[in-house]
């Protein structure tokens, strides 16, 4: 079997209890692997630890125990994390807080290029315009401020910003949760297209099993800081083995399910 591109092994995360309370175990001995070119879904309800796990994998949260490896090598030093972040990028859930409120879209998209000196300053506007086109926004957006954009547009810009560095892996934390259904479909379609075009590997985190089913090749179901079931999406959704997975699937509203009898 090939080496995973990014791997979290035996991750535990414990938050100290507040005011002498019990410490909170956000993650208990969780492992996760992402292989080249696949879309991995992390699904679970609030408090399952899926966001914490993803944040540990990009280094904005540190694991209590366990380690993250990138291309087979453990990530330890600051320099290691820096190298990881050249190839792994992250998109946040809330499009309203993930963009700096005082920075224009063009500047926000050009910033990664400036930081990593990827191209001469004179070429930056050109690359920003190309990226805006790729995510389906007009070039005039570059002059706008985040407050002038809709939620869906902001989420596209966040996605674009993460893609400016041409990463190989994208971690998406609930990126369509706050969006309307028709806009959510637009962002999902964009994500599928980008994944194909750029050969991205994706970790896609969501509480919505319908979105996970649509997008993912492989799924890990999380509950209270543990992975309770994992496998290819078709298997997990069509023949779930774990009781919790089954309950979760049953709770999803479904227009095609037979109407519940009124006397229930």
């Amino acid at each position: 079997m090939s080496t995973p591109i990014i791997e979290a092994s035996a991750i535990t995360k414990t938050f100290p209890g507040r005011r002498g309370g019990q410490p909170f175990h956000a993650l208990r001995n969780v492992s996760s692997k992402l292989f080249e070119g696949e879309i991995l879904g992390l699904v679970g309800e609030s408090g399952s630890g899926k966001t914490t796990l993803s944040r540990i994998m990009i280094g904005i949260e540190t694991a209590t125990t366990g380690e993250v490896s990138f291309q087979g090598r453990p990530v330890q030093s600051r320099a290691d994390w820096k190298a990881l972040r050249r190839d792994v990028q992250y998109v946040f859930q809330d499009p309203f807080t993930a963009l700096c409120p005082t920075m224009r879209i063009g500047a926000a998209l050009a910033e990664p290029l400036a930081i990593h000196r990827l191209c001469p300053a004179s070429e930056r506007p050109e690359r920003v315009a190309r990226m805006l086109e790729m995510i389906g926004l007009g070039p005039e957006m570059a002059r706008r401020l985040p407050a002038q954009l809709s939620g869906g547009q902001r989420q596209r810009v966040s996605l674009a910003r993460a893609l400016m560095l041409e990463p190989r892996v994208l971690i998406c934390d609930e990126i369509v949760s706050g969006l309307d259904v028709s806009v959510q479909a637009q962002v999902l379609a964009l994500l599928v297209e980008l994944q194909r075009k750029l050969g991205l590997s994706l970790i896609f985190i969501s509480h919505d099993l319908r979105v996970i089913r649509y997008l993912c090749d492989r799924v890990q179901v999380m509950l209270l800081g543990q992975i309770v079931e994992e496998g290819p999406a078709a298997q997990v959704f069509d023949a779930p083995e774990n009781d919790y997975t089954r309950a979760l699937l049953a709770a999803i509203p479904d227009r095609d399910r037979l109407p519940v009898s009124e006397s229930a």
Partner: peptide
Amino acid sequence: KAAEIIGA
């Protein structure tokens, strides 16, 4: 955090 992740 997003700025941190893009290397700022």
